[in-house]
Design a protein around this nucleic acid. Structure first.
Lengths: 211, 211, 211, 211
DNA sequence: TATGAATGAGGTTTCATTCAT
DNA sequence: TATGAATGAAACCTCATTCAT
């Protein structure tokens, strides 16, 4: 391994350390209440160093979302390629969503923050491109499956984008909602069981009643 | 009208002016990015005056959510009392949700903010009580309808709270999600049409298949 | 009683109400932490009314000191006229001081505040004149007694003003000091017993040792 | 000198700069009327920097008192160890007090502020501990001397704590009082000469009349 | 004379970001 | 590249004071 490669790898490693630290802090306190100094402390680095890897606080936060979005897109892609029925694929999506939620329960708050009015236009071109790419990948794959299902006469005849949105948004809403209730109730597993019921309901809702 | 009444009414009017200004600012910029000075400017008042009517920024923001929550609870209550089938009631909820969304599209971001970890315990006792009251009213009514439906053998045999959560959360998720897309797409009516499809899907999903 | 007199008396009464309220608030919270609104509330008046009777917060506070200073001056004058020895007069001063301390334990903090750097030059001419008048009355009387004592060969040959200052300042210091300790110790009567010892010591210190 | 040491020293230097600036401002205007911005200006630093060295305004102010209290305690300790009679020690205290007064004439106002009800509980644990430590050191030493004097039959039979309080409080009162007169009279040296007389008087007052 | 709602200047404090080392 | 002390703008909030009623 050449010296250039080693440096590159070190840089990558350092970057990931920061991301990990940021995830921990942002997850527990939200965007506003988290400070760069706190994240630096968690990463065992100085505040100044953070700015060598990320343009600003906003971008660091956004990168977390991209990270999770990429993970989501990758997993969804895998499901798409599996040799199973569309119905089974929709069911598999449920598992993907639950896995991602387990990895980072604050993901959706981040994703919504991303597109909310609070997000300034401070993001660099590169970051914006990534968001769009992964977003299209993830949504596109879901839309494709829905389309297939409609073509096969398995799903109801509605606008595929709308159905995909419903799938995606219901999932998001449930995680957000149940997660916010969890803060008060301490019922950790209720999120997952509700998610399962939700998917059952929605799948049943999209399916065409065949006789 | 006595002098006391006039004063009371003026005070109420002023309070509403502030709420209206706050709604405008908070809606367009979110909680953190909005400043009290900006809200005061919008209300054509001085910053200090805001604090005569609201304890602090947090409480002013919360009051917006309460306002909308009250509206939601009231409308839901009305639906509950209507002399129609449970299925039709669920359908009517859809309209209520859409109406409320039309009144203030940022409602749900507020409601989620309300229960997120970022919300400090700066709220006065009165405000907290109101939140709880209206929250219970709105959720309780929905749960009751679901229960009725299950008892009548119209809805599937699942935990009523879970089904109510799914209904509520899906709605919330869709509004949040489609609304955040709207910021980019400018397709205003897409929200409503997607909401309609979503309700059709979910209603179908909850219904027991009777033969 | 004419209508003018009645009004005059009402005015005086109202003024005293404010002073009483101010004393209560200032005593328990100090000058800075007390607000005009709080004083108005205590006096069952509106904030605006306070400004009809007193130029500003500073002056209202000052008037409390004047009130106590006047009381002190009056009592001291009485002692001066009593037909007793100078030594006995000094002893009587001790009682006067203790009585005044009982009436308002925060008196000296007020008096010091009066002449500290924090006191702005916001005081009206009338108020300043009063302070000077009563100050001179009180101090002058003490100085006179000391002088008499020196002339009679009872007290040591030192500058009478210095001796009077020592008497006055020691008393003040002890009240302040022990009072500040009281806040922690809750030993209420220790102030008075220490004051008594202090006077004994000082009197002994001033007396010429006669053989 | 290593790089760490240099940095440490720089930091210490900066801290002292702030303390010096704060002393100047606080001395001339009192606690409330002084603003952090003004102190920063005086120290040729930005307001934010002050908060890197001191938790808040209250603590910065308190540190001034600690500084002076430490100085007082140190000097008193030295006197205690000197090989002179108790009477001479009391006399030496007088010089210590005068020296400290020369160093910072506003010391006592600060010390009283410290223990007054206005002082909030905003102080850090470390600072509170220091105050207690030095306070006990200084008072304890004086009490010890008094005790010795009583045991040796040189001082009168009174509660040693009371006598120490009288000594301490008289000194404080005189400085405060004469200093406040100075503000009007501009007689600078009068403080010291009065202090000298005061100590003579008090010493004579505490001494047992031996024949 | 009395009110009390409104003012708005001014205060403390935080924290994202920079830059000399 | 990494540091971390310093910055300084900007935020929230208070409260003495005013003035129309």
């Amino acid at each position: 391994m050449g010296i250039f490669e080693r440096k590159q790898r070190e840089k990558e490693y350092r970057r990931n350390e920061i991301i990990r630290a940021a995830r921990k802090i942002f997850s527990s306190k939200g965007f506003t209440a988290s400070s760069m100094e706190e994240i630096a402390l968690q990463a065992e680095l100085s505040p100044g160093t953070l700015y060598l890897y990320f343009k600003n606080k906003e971008e660091l936060h956004t990168v977390l979302s991209i990270d999770i979005l990429k993970r989501l897109a990758d997993e969804i892609q895998k499901v798409v390629k599996e040799d199973i029925s569309v119905e089974e694929k929709i069911e598999r999506f449920r598992d993907v969503f639950i896995e991602v939620y387990d990895y980072d329960s604050s993901i959706l708050i981040n994703l919504f923050h991303l597109q909310s009015g609070e997000t300034l236009k401070n993001l660099s071109e590169e970051v914006l491109t990534q968001i769009k790419t992964y977003s299209i990948m993830a949504h596109g794959a879901i839309i494709d499956i829905i389309k297939q299902g409609i073509d096969q006469g398995v799903f109801i005849d509605e606008h595929p984008v709308a159905l995909a949105d419903i799938l995606w948004a219901s999932y998001s809403g449930i995680v957000l909602w149940v997660d916010s209730k969890r803060l008060l109730n301490d019922e950790k597993d209720f999120v997952r069981s509700t998610l399962r019921t939700a998917f059952k309901v929605i799948l049943k809702g999209i399916k065409k009643n065949q006789l």
